[in-house]
Amino acid sequence: MLDGRTTLDLVIGFLGLLMILAALWSVLSKRLLSSVLLSGAVSLLASLVFLALGAPDVAMTEAAIGSALTTMVFLYSLSRMKVEQDAHEDGGAS
C-alpha cells in the first residue's frame, strides 16, 4: 500500500520523465516548429509539478506565461523571420 508521500513522488517522477524527454526532443529536433511547441509542453508539465509542490500561484503564472505567451512570442517571431526572408529575396530579385 502506497502512502501519500510515495504516490506524490511517483506522480512527480512521471511528469519529470515526460518533461526531460520533451526537453531533449525539443533541443535535438530538426524542425523549429516542433522545437518551440515542445518547449511549451515542458512549461505546461512544470506548472503541474509546481501545483504538486504546494505553489498554486507559481503554477498559474507558469501555465499562463510559459505555455501560452512564450509559445506565441516564439511563433510570432518565426513568422516574422519568414516575412523578413521573403522581403530579402524580393529585394535581391529586383
Binding site: 505567451l69 506565441m72 512570442v73 510570432y76 517571431s77 513568422s79 516574422r80 516575412v83
Partner: peptide
C-alpha cells in the same frame, strides 16, 4: 510586447 512581435 505581443503587439510589437506581431508581424507588420
Amino acid at each position: 510586447i505581443l503587439d510589437a512581435m506581431k508581424e507588420d
